[in-house]
């Protein structure tokens, strides 16, 4: 759903750019709590994965292409603030170097995928975790759910923006039906992939999963006898 140059009118583009800039500023501040010594490379890797995932495109009825978003995956792995930064980087690189999504539509794309996608995904994950048993195995299920709903939320937002500031007079209900039905399908794919990736990572490196941190408990390690120098 990368919005190209000239797709939405100037007012809408500027408005979403302001939203995106505000979100990035807040995320730069918020992410300081999420980032430590080793989380910058983790954020970079999450960005790489999302970059690759977004290359898998599906045609969407009545127009644009749809693809995996990765917002929920990023939020689960690195926390929502850093996730917004990851998506910003991915979308920026795509716009600058790959011509995927217009440079002037960058604000719109960041708002859709980096703010709506990330925060809806994160909220759903947190909410579902709060009603599920406090176990690591709950995390992938919650992540999958977050993946599904984040995609649908982003598609709805896109349709809304188009209804307000689309430069082409397309029937909004045609677009809405097309976007929602296709993105529900994409959302199911996103749910499965998010759950599987998070499930594997939580199994071997729970320390790399942001939302799983509170689920671990420290204990004293045993020792063995040795010689002393």
């Amino acid at each position: 759903m990368h919005v190209p140059d000239g797709f939405l009118d100037a007012t809408t583009s500027v408005a979403t750019a302001v939203v995106a800039a505000g979100a990035i500023a807040a995320s730069l501040r918020g992410s300081r709590r999420e980032l430590d010594d080793r989380s910058a490379p983790l954020a970079g890797l999450v960005a790489t994965f999302i970059f690759a995932a977004q290359m898998v495109n599906f045609p969407v009825a009545a127009g644009t292409s749809g693809h995996l978003l990765g917002g929920a995956l990023a939020a689960v792995l690195v926390g929502p603030w850093t996730a917004t930064l990851c998506l910003t980087v991915v979308l920026g690189v795509q716009a600058l170097l790959f011509a995927d999504g217009g440079l002037t539509a960058l604000g719109t794309n960041i708002t859709l995928m980096g703010v709506v996608g990330v925060w809806v995904g994160y909220a759903v994950v947190r909410l579902s975790l709060s009603v599920m048993p406090r176990r690591l195995s709950s995390v992938p299920v919650a992540a999958g759910l977050g993946g599904l709903l984040s995609v649908v939320a982003a598609a709805l937002t896109f349709t809304g923006l188009f209804a307000v500031g689309g430069t082409v007079p397309v029937q909004v209900d045609t677009l809405l039906t097309g976007m929602v039905s296709v993105h529900t399908l994409i959302g199911l794919g996103e749910a499965v992939l998010t759950a599987l990736v998070v499930g594997t990572v939580v199994g071997v490196r729970p320390d790399l999963v942001h939302v799983a941190r509170s689920l671990r408990s420290p204990e004293r390690l045993p020792t063995r006898p040795g010689v002393h120098s």
Binding site: P206, L208, L221, P222, P225, G226, H228
Partner: peptide
Amino acid sequence: RGLTYAYPDGTQALWGVDLHV
């Protein structure tokens, strides 16, 4: 002195290392 360590996946790799150089 008395260095212990377990990796995040639970594998304990150090069980109380003492060394002076």
